[in-house]
Design a protein around this nucleic acid. Structure first.
Length: 865
RNA sequence: GGGUGUGUAGCUCAGGUGGUUAGAGCGCUACGUUCACAUCGUAGAGGUCGCUGGUUCGAGUCCAGCCACACCCACCA
């Protein structure tokens, strides 16, 4: 399909029209299609980040994704085929959370499917959530993600990202589920994945386990409670400070440091837990620190991560009192593990607590302690940091449950080694990766007790009593994938045996969303089905906040699956900060969305803004830069239009092969400057330093408009001179290519409207310019600088005199060393033209240094307006 | 407490291997406006390069120590 040209750029520039024309042209002509017949060496592969589908893209996405697009476009123009996929991360908790809020629903897997269920967006979050079946819930997720993804896709197309839209994946699609389940099976067979029952960090709102990487600390206010644990048959005791007195019923020991003299006399002795009256021992352990608080603490199952660690090596019984919903479980004192010297009293207290959320239970316990006199002083307010799921708003609890884990702790060394084989840009981001790996203290919990995600390809046999046999999971055969164990039946079983003693049940959990997004390279390979390519890819662009998740997990999976690194380089983009240098986030309400900026300034200008920032550097959002970009785009358009006019009326109008006509010394000197620019920009782009490349190109372009174009304007219009017109053509062609990765819309429009050249092909399928043939030696090259300087001095003289630039110059003297004078002589006509010099007005005099003086203006010519 | 980065003009940012009067764009001021462009041009004002020491003939640039800000991790009785 040919491009609908705006012939000779006759119309005034209309950004919206240009953008529409280009989008249409690029898509209909498959301009950005990946060519799978090319060799790996001729292919550039990008592991594009699939944005999380959770509402709207914000300007930070546009920022970093555009930087990658510049790289992709450059590599394409270097002659490579670019495998530049696009994906959407639409499975997992973030999506479910959005769906719950958007439709105000919650999943209740007990309910039956309602095929007439109507889903509507509900703004008011006050009304209680409507409960829907698992199937209805998943359908709601599918519905909302589909419309969200369409919006994302439009924005990406509007900003001109050159993805191959044929290679589009979604992490919840059947293909992705298959790849993700294959990954699970592979790791299961390799012994890298295990299912164990153990205390796990648990989000009580989403009622799911979460992984270390998804946890973040938040400062919250709380209270220290000083509680007296009395020795048996004594009024003396030990005072314990705790922030979580509601855990008293689950207390299993008191712990102090072995060297702590204050408590040495008590080690081995028993104390009585207030209210619940069970006896616990005072135990020495390195776990406690002498100079923290009172130096002694109570261990409960489980108030925090340290409790879990201590409990694991203690051999003491587990007293789980927090349930999956964050409320206190129903337990009875009087039998193991809830022993008590006074079960009736303990049960009476506990009956008041059972079913309450932890926070409410805490208040109740404090009230009881106050009454019983065990609270030795009033609670003291403190702020302390507490672990939260990054997307949750209630503190995490430790709940014992059966979860799938991928073994990571035994691979720290290998992971660091792998990280060192990958080049991080900027380099210091590698240190972040290593620090995270070093600090790993848990395996990767990949199961989530949720609904919209990749199911585990696993069933469990039921024994004669109907209890699941977790130690011998039935793993799906690869031929069954993708599989949903809640619907599909394991090989060798009949669906009628589901839930029956001696039969089977499906694993009802889904996988952590990262377990799938850590496979983005594999998802892409699955899509393109080309055996000639594989891991490692060339680049992984991403932001620094997800080094510990996305980069880390992808490296881990590549290592475990194929013992390789997933990519050669990681390009870390910076964040966009708000004008107060604060991180943009929904909760702060300072998020800027992109579409109105594209509408106001044009896609090219927004891209210009993004391309100016260096990798890894956080940047304050500055709309002025887009205005600056718009000026540049306008200038590119107008300068091109001007050159088109000149060329159309010149002798070169119908000449295709114009380059041999570039012969005049000034023009050759200019072309040398252009060659220098291309060389610098190429080197910069090859190392992903697009910002430096843009800077070089832009500076030279403004120089072109301000100086070169002014210098040759007059000569270019003359019938006899073909060199100037040819140089202008070559210059415009070069600038169009050089700007193409940055401002693809305006450059395509101009390229297609050129009065010379073919114009059927997209500019973005042409090759990056090579001007090395024009690189001159420094002496000849300098002619352009001299002329610019002389013209500048004359211009300045006119400005200082406050007269029009049209004012003729009667005399001007250039002082310069002999060799420079010789050079200048070769461009004398251009100097006269650009300066408005009368005949013989220019005088050249020998001197030690180059300067311009004795400028005499013909003021009589400017008196009338 | 451990780690990383940043601190240069009112604002947003550039400033390889240390070298003459420290740069750009925006903003501000003045002037101009020529047949590509007012989404224009020319010129000007504006900086003790976070602070303090050190190395050096010479430091924005190297070293040490501080200060401020941001981010990551850990602790969180």
């Amino acid at each position: 399909m040919p491009y609908k040209t705006n012939k000779n750029l006759d119309d005034r520039m209309n950004l919206a029209e240009i953008e529409e024309r280009c989008k249409d042209f690029w898509i209909k002509n498959n301009v950005y299609a990946y060519d799978n017949s090319r060799t790996r060496n001729d292919t550039f592969i990008i592991d594009t980040p699939p944005p999380t589908v959770s509402g709207s893209l914000h300007i930070g996405h546009i920022f970093s994704y555009t930087q990658t697009d510049v790289v992709a476009r450059f590599e394409r123009m270097k002659g490579k085929t670019v495998l530049y996929p696009i994906g959407f991360d639409d499975n997992g908790l973030p999506t479910e959370r959005r769906v719950q809020n958007y439709y105000n629903i919650a999943c209740n897997p007990e309910l039956a499917y309602d095929e007439n269920l109507k889903l509507e967006h509900i703004e008011n979050d006050e009304t209680p959530r409507r409960e829907v079946s698992r199937k209805n819930f998943i359908e709601a997720c599918e519905k909302l993600t589909a419309s969200d993804e369409q919006i994302f896709e439009n924005v990406f197309k509007n900003i001109g990202h050159s993805y191959d839209w044929n290679i589009k994946y979604a992490t919840i699609s059947p293909d992705s589920i298959k790849v993700s389940q294959e990954s699970f099976i592979d790791l299961y067979e390799k012994g890298e994945v295990k299912s164990i029952e153990s205390p796990t960090m648990w989000d009580v709102t989403f009622q799911s386990a979460v992984a270390q990487a998804e946890v973040e600390d938040k400062e919250v206010s709380g209270f220290f409670h000083d509680i007296k644990f009395k020795f048996k048959d004594s009024d003396d005791g030990i005072i314990i400070s705790t922030t979580r007195p509601e855990f008293l019923p689950a207390c299993i020991a008191l712990v102090a440091h072995p060297d702590d003299e204050r408590y040495q006399p008590y080690f081995g002795k028993k104390v009585v837990v207030p209210l619940f009256e069970n006896e616990v021992e005072v135990v020495p352990s390195e776990h406690a620190e002498k100079d923290k608080g009172t130096g002694i603490l109570m261990v409960c199952t489980f108030g925090d991560a340290a409790d879990v660690a201590w409990w694991k090596q203690s051999g003491l019984p587990l007293k789980q009192i927090i349930g999956r919903d964050g409320c206190l479980l129903d337990v009875t004192f009087g039998a193991e593990p809830f022993v008590s010297n006074n079960p009736d009293k303990a049960n009476a207290y506990y009956a008041e607590l059972a079913g309450l959320p932890a926070k409410k239970a805490r208040e109740k316990v404090v009230e009881f302690l106050r009454q019983s006199g065990d609270l030795v002083s009033e609670p003291r307010p403190i702020t302390h940091s507490v672990k939260f799921y990054e997307k949750g708003n209630r503190p995490l609890e430790f709940v014992t449950s059966r979860q799938w884990f991928i073994k990571l702790q035994d691979k720290k060394e290998k992971m660091i080694e792998a990280g060192r084989k990958i080049k991080f840009k900027p380099q210091h981001m590698q240190i972040r990766y290593e620090e995270w790996v070093k600090g790993l203290n848990q395996d990767w919990c990949i199961s989530r007790q949720r609904f919209f995600g990749v199911p585990f390809p696993v069933w469990y046999k039921l024994d004669a009593k109907g209890e699941p046999v977790f130690d011998e999971p039935i793993v799906a055969d690869r031929s069954q994938l993708p599989v949903d164990p809640m619907i599909d039946t394991p090989l060798g079983f009949d669906e009628s045996m589901r839930g029956q003693p001696g039969g089977f049940i499906g694993d009802k959990d889904v996988m952590d969303t990262w377990a799938t997004s850590a496979l983005t390279p594999q998802l892409v390979l699955d899509k393109v089905k080309n055996d000639a390519i594989g891991l490692p890819f060339d680049i992984r662009p991403q932001a620094h906040d997800i080094i510990r998740t996305w980069a880390f997990y992808t490296i881990a999976k590549a290592l475990m699956h194929s013992n390789t690194i997933p990519w050669h380089e990681v390009l870390i983009s910076g964040f966009i900060l708000d004008p107060d240098r604060k991180k943009m986030s929904k909760s702060k309400g300072n998020v800027v969305t992109p579409q109105h900026l594209i509408d106001n300034y044009g896609a090219d200008s927004v891209r210009y803004w993004a391309s100016r920032a260096r990798l890894g550097v956080d940047t304050a959002f500055e709309e002025q830069i887009m205005a600056q970009g718009k000026k540049l785009v306008n200038k590119i358009f107008n300068a091109s239009k001007f050159v088109f006019n000149i060329v159309s009326s010149s002798a070169l109008k119908d000449v295709k092969d114009y380059e041999p006509f570039i012969t005049s010394p000034t023009d050759l000197a200019w072309m040398s400057k252009m060659a220098e620019m291309i060389k610098g920009a190429t080197v910069a782009l090859e190392t992903y330093d697009y910002a430096t490349a843009l800077d070089l190109i832009e500076k030279r372009f403004w120089d072109f408009c301000d100086n070169y174009l002014e210098i040759v304007k007059k000569r270019a219009y003359s019938e006899s001179d073909r060199s100037a017109a040819a140089t202008l053509m070559k210059t415009i062609d070069t600038f169009l290519s050089a700007f193409a990765p940055f401002t693809p819309f305006v450059t395509e429009e101009i390229y297609q409207a050129r009065p010379w050249g073919e114009g059927n092909m997209s500019l973005h399928n042409t090759l990056w310019p090579d001007l090395s043939a024009y690189a001159l030696n420094a002496k000849t090259d300098a002619l352009y600088d001299y002329i610019s300087l002389i013209a500048g001095e004359i211009r300045k003289a006119k400005t200082t005199a406050g007269v029009s630039q049209r004012t003729p110059v009667m005399k001007a003297t250039v002082f310069a060393p002999k060799n420079i004078i010789d050079t200048i002589k070769s461009g004398i006509e251009d100097i006269e033209n650009v300066g408005g010099l009368l005949e013989n007005a220019l005088e050249l005099k020998e001197a030690d240094t180059l300067s311009v003086g004795d400028i005499a203006l013909d003021l009589s010519a400017t008196t009338q307006k």
